[in-house]
């Protein structure tokens, strides 16, 4: 799969941009948290597209965001 670029994303309508980002993020998140992947992806899609693009290129920052999201989700579900 070719890397997602800002110009590829900008060519799509806003709602579709989140869809595209979600399709890229979901498998990465699913590998770490199979049961929470849908919810975590939903949370991360609230982040700016430009930041999501950077996260897709940087596994470390993606992982730390995922852990942050899991912590928020666990508190939220209590």
């Amino acid at each position: 799969q070719e890397p997602l670029t800002a110009s590829m994303l900008a060519a799509a309508p806003p709602q579709e941009q989140k869809q595209i980002l979600g399709e890229r993020l979901y498998p990465l998140i699913h590998a770490m948290h199979p049961f929470l992947a849908g919810k975590i992806t939903g949370m991360l899609l609230e982040i700016d597209n430009s930041e999501l693009l950077l996260m897709l290129e940087s596994p470390e920052s993606l992982h730390s965001k995922i852990e942050e999201a899991v912590a928020v989700l666990q508190v939220h579900q209590m």
Binding site: K18, G22, Y26, P27, K39, G42, L45, D48
Partner: peptide, 22 residues
Amino acid sequence: SSSVNWPPEFRPGEPWKGYPNI
């Protein structure tokens, strides 16, 4: 509470029902 359904769940292959970037 309206927050019960937060966050919206992403399902691969289905149209995203959440909010677009503002």
